[in-house]
Amino acid sequence: MKAALDIRDLSVDYHTRAGRLHALRNVDLLVPDGEVVGLVGESGCGKSTLISAVLRLLAENAEVPGGEIVLDGTDLLSLSDAEMRLRRGRDVSVVFQDPMTGLNPVLTIGRQMIDIQHREALSRAARRERAVDMLARVRIPDPASRMDSYPHELSGGMRQRVAIAMALMMNPKLLIADEPTTALDATLEVQIIELLQELQGEIGCAILFISHHLGVIAELCQRVVVMYAGSAVEEGGVRDIFHAPAHPYTKALLDCDPGRIRERRQTLPSIPGSLPDLTAPPPGCIFADRCTKADAGCGATQPPRIDTAPGHWATCHFAEAMR
């Protein structure tokens, strides 16, 4: 299977006052060519760090002690800063969460769409044409006249469409969508998801889709990676993950999804406990503290990666038993 993005054994540390914070620990993640992979996990599990690492835009106090980020056959961590800059936008591109702040408020949409092609050897007219064409592809009505609009003249959904158009302008091989629908209401969310599905078919790029909305992940993605406290704990096809989770955390996460609650109750379900201190992660399984299945062995030894089905693995001692 050829991969658009293959992250192997990636670790990222932040130097903080409290000490070294191990934000990502030995993360493996695979985005096959032309597929949509969902990344789920609660706030603070390292999703944003992972994106920044792929783009190589980590904060100044971050350090990558080990691992590989292979994008289209090249380890991004081995590139120089200038080489990496050339790859951003062209090989890998991002749509961010908040459409309200994702566009420059003082430049017209057209100016920004044209500017983003600064590396293409095209005439101004050709760039404009491409920009209009791209706006039409994200279903912006009357794209030619919208080119002269400022971002504040567009609605939130429209702006997110523009952001998607900008991200796909250079036909990237991988699009990272960082919770692109979280700030939108439910009807717009459906529209944006459908749009992403259509565009993915047309352009053929792989998408790494980050969300905590499990319903959206199930709808859009072929594969899912579950992250917890800086580790990838389970990866597999979307059916396997949703119907036969092999990690207790994944199961707990699914049980907490409001869309799956069947009976009336006073409070929403949640996972008891809180995230472990990542400056001093426990020696054994990272989820042991909050896990209902944990025994003495879980707190002492790190669970290995166990394959439960082809293309489906989990890091849990009980992965086989879970199924």
Partner: peptide
Amino acid sequence: AQEFIDAERAMGASPAR
């Protein structure tokens, strides 16, 4: 610190740009 500057960085714009 604004997201559109992050977006520009992610799209490969140089610091001068």
